[in-house]
Design a protein around this nucleic acid. Structure first.
Lengths: 157, 157
DNA sequence: GGTTGCGTTTGAGCGCGCTCAAAGTCCTAC
DNA sequence: GTAGGACTTTGAGCGCGCTCAAACGCAACC
């Protein structure tokens, strides 16, 4: 494991530890900042760093989610931008945003600043979906808690 | 639409409107209570009532999630227990509990009260999974909110 | 007595998001 | 120079949770 990977992985590990109330604010960007602009990572390093399998990383590239350069041997070289993209994608995936929507978003980004309104709309609509999901989960949690609390009670199944 | 279906659907509709803090407590059981013990519903009625497609209802029966009787014509007749089971299953599904785990749970229920500890363990472990999912979603929401708030900022992609 | 409509069964198919297998390339170490 | 290992590509396969198609049954209505 390279020093870069070690450093970044520690950083990654610290990120999800966020407690609910505070917005991560600067931390959202911190990963991209912390890697040198000219650093190049192999697919294995990115996999280890992000927790995304090499298979999945190749898949992401295939479907156009991220563009990755090659070295002289034809091996993938993830630069800072590519890594940031992967991290961003995994974060959206974490919230169950469909790959298709992420692809659309990324496509809009490539088309330049003119598409910002549509990107914003996409994010907002996804945000609403996340809120619905949160609500569903909270309701389900209540049902489960009820079930646990009243175990052996009259309530079916 | 029968009167029973109308009444039950109104009841269903009122259930998910729960705000987060209060536990649904009695409401969890209310659906089962409100249908007459001798009522029998067709698959179409149950589908309309629960929002689960007839296709999915047949699938649930096939994989052993619910047992449903037949009338003289061989058509499914959902009784109170079967309906309660369907509702319970949809609630667990809503929290992304894998069908396999639900099947296991239902199997344990069929085996009698001796399996209550294992059932409880299953629920508790699923509860933990739901909590993790909630945390993930909240983190993702923060990222999305950040992205929306700082749109056009320096943060990639 | 034919048509309409809701139901039945079995088994295949699908969309998603990967995951893996096969066959090959390139670099390094012995 | 050859073995190993990490990588490459292409295309197929998989697990999940349904979803649908085909062929049929029954019952009611015109």
């Amino acid at each position: 494991m390279t020093a870069t990977v070690r450093r970044l992985r520690d950083l990654m590990a610290s990120l999800p530890a966020q407690e609910l109330p505070p917005l991560p604010e600067e931390l959202v960007c911190s990963l991209e900042v912390s890697i040198a602009p000219d650093a190049r990572l192999s697919i294995a390093e990115v996999a280890e760093l992000t927790g995304v399998s090499a298979h999945a990383l190749r898949y992401y590239e295939r479907i156009g989610l991220v563009e990755v350069g090659r070295d002289s041997a034809g091996h993938r070289q993830y630069d800072r931008d590519a890594l940031a993209r992967v991290v961003f994608v995994t974060r959206l995936r974490l919230s169950d945003m469909p790959i298709q929507a992420i692809t659309r978003y990324v496509e809009l980004v490539r088309q330049g600043p003119a598409t910002e309104p549509e990107r914003l709309a996409l994010l907002r609509s996804h945000r609403a979906a996340v809120l619905r999901r949160l609500q569903d989960l909270r309701t389900a949690l209540a049902v489960i808690d009820y079930k646990i609390a009243t175990y052996g009670g009259a309530c079916a199944p």
